[in-house]
Simulated scan of single mutants.
Amino acid sequence: MEEIAIVQGLENAPLARPIREEIFLQEQGFSTEFDEEEERAWHLLLFLDGEAVATGRLFPKDGEDGVYVMGRVAVRKPYRGRHLGQKVVRALEEKAQQMGGKGIYLGAQTHAQTFYEQLGYHPCGEIFYDEHCPHIPMEKSL
């Protein structure tokens, strides 16, 4: 059975932390994962049969009314290929709309650009690096 929970503040979504550590720190080699946005962000957890297998977050973009920043979308390796990432993105988009959001901005790892394009996002700037990893800014109107 599939369930989605969205709560504000990382302390209210403690199962998101180990997923992000596993994927971004251990698997992808980032050295910093958690930041000052954690407590104001809305954190999503996707559960399969009671196990937390995917996460993502959403927070208002500073200085841009109605625009939200989506990020930290991650699916544990054994659960990839099941369209769970799409479900995370769509649920976060829905949450943004419920809060009056008119658009979403994200910095996609370049290898995930096609994934986001298939969900209606388009590039809106030049490639930049977050630590060692190339990212591309992308956006979508809601």
Rank of each mutant, 00 (worst) to 15 (best):
D130E: 14
I104M: 14
V75G: 09
G101K: 03
A108E: 07
T55W: 06
R17D: 08
Y105C: 02
W42S: 03
F128M: 03
Y116V: 08
Y121A: 02
E37T: 09
T32D: 08
S31R: 13
E39Y: 09
P134Q: 06
L119P: 13
W42K: 06
G71C: 13
R82G: 09
K95S: 07
A16V: 13
G81R: 01
A41D: 05
D130G: 05
G103Q: 10
Q28H: 13
E117W: 05
I6S: 11
V73F: 10
E11N: 14
S31Q: 13
G100N: 01
E27L: 14
V75C: 12
G85M: 12
V53N: 04
L92F: 08
L92I: 07
Y121P: 00
K140Q: 13
A108V: 09
P137Q: 07
V67E: 01
N12I: 12
I6L: 11
M70L: 00
G120Q: 10
A96H: 01
G120R: 10
V89N: 07
E131P: 08
T114N: 14
F128N: 06
P14H: 15
N12D: 15
E126W: 03
I136N: 03
E37A: 06
E38Y: 10
L15R: 15
Y116T: 10
H132C: 09
P78Q: 12
L15D: 15
G29W: 14
A16E: 12
G71K: 14
E93N: 07
E139K: 14
P18K: 15
H122N: 01
V53H: 03
F34V: 02
V75H: 09
E21D: 15
R80A: 10
G100E: 02
H132L: 09
F128G: 06
A112W: 05
I136G: 07
K77I: 12
G125F: 00
A96Q: 05
T55S: 13
Q8K: 14
P60E: 11
G63S: 03
E21R: 15
Q109W: 02
H132V: 09
D130T: 09
E21Y: 15
V67L: 01
I136L: 01
Y68W: 08
P60W: 06
D62H: 03
H122A: 11
T114P: 10
M70P: 00
K87F: 07
V89Y: 04
Q26W: 13
E94K: 10
K140W: 11
A74I: 10
Y68P: 04
G100A: 06
D35H: 12
P18A: 15
L45R: 03
I23M: 14
M138P: 07
G71W: 14
A13T: 10
I104W: 01
G50S: 12
E11H: 11
V69N: 05
R76L: 14
L48T: 08
D35Q: 11
R40H: 04
L92M: 08
A74V: 11
V88Q: 07
Y68E: 07
Q118H: 15
S141Y: 02
P123N: 00
A112Y: 04
T32K: 12
F30Q: 11
G125L: 00
T55C: 13
G101Q: 06
D49M: 03
Y79I: 05
T32L: 12
Q28F: 11
I23K: 11
D65Y: 05
